[in-house]
């Protein structure tokens, strides 16, 4: 009985040790994070900014467009960004919401942008998503990412807004 018990303790501790060494690494090997951001994380210039409890950011101005800079959390050392998406409502039939994804080198002396995309249509029910597939980042150590959008003026159909944006595999 004593020998069996001792063996059991050894097995248990070895098992725990094995998990300590092998377990976390094995599970993280296939870990692909997604980072989701509330639209209220965006900062704005121009227009008239409105924040709502859902975390939405909108342009309340009837005459001016609003520029948005939406910072994005990025995992250190990760060379892949994956799919970047912006979830929005475009209430302006004429102008649409225009967005691009930015990948910037440390110190801001080099920056790359994805093709600018514009939401089509318009109106109170025009909810949609703009997406880009980003293969790799240019400065994996100190570079940073953000989404740059322009929200058109408000119309009788309502305000155009960014609800959220995300990046990840």
């Amino acid at each position: 009985m004593q020998k069996t018990k001792r063996s059991s303790i050894v097995l248990a501790v070895l098992g725990a040790l094995g998990l300590l060494v092998g377990g976390p690494t094995a599970s993280f090997a296939s870990y692909h994070p997604q980072f989701h951001h509330s639209g209220s994380m965006c900062v704005s210039t121009g227009g008239s900014r409105g924040y709502y409890n859902q975390g939405i950011i909108s342009n309340l101005s009837y005459s001016s467009s609003m520029n948005l800079f939406c910072p994005m959390v990025r995992e250190n050392d990760n060379t892949q960004v994956g799919t970047v998406s912006v979830h929005l409502r475009d209430a302006n039939h004429g102008e649409g919401i225009q967005c691009s994804f930015y990948d910037v080198e440390a110190y801001g002396r080099s920056w790359a942008w994805s093709g600018w995309k514009t939401s089509l249509g318009g109106g109170a029910s025009n909810i949609g998503t703009l997406s880009w597939d980003i293969n790799s980042v240019r400065d994996q150590y100190a570079g940073y990412n953000h989404i740059r959008c322009t929200l058109p003026p408000r119309t009788s159909d309502g305000t155009s807004y960014i609800a959220s944006y995300r990046a990840g595999e």
Partner: peptide, 21 residues
């Protein structure tokens, strides 16, 4: 890979140990 195997062996070890205890 080898790390996966370590994890699998460790899990088996824990299971056997738990039953023995």
């Amino acid at each position: 890979n080898a790390r996966h195997w370590i994890g699998v062996v460790a899990l088996c070890g824990l299971s056997v140990a738990g039953a023995e205890l």
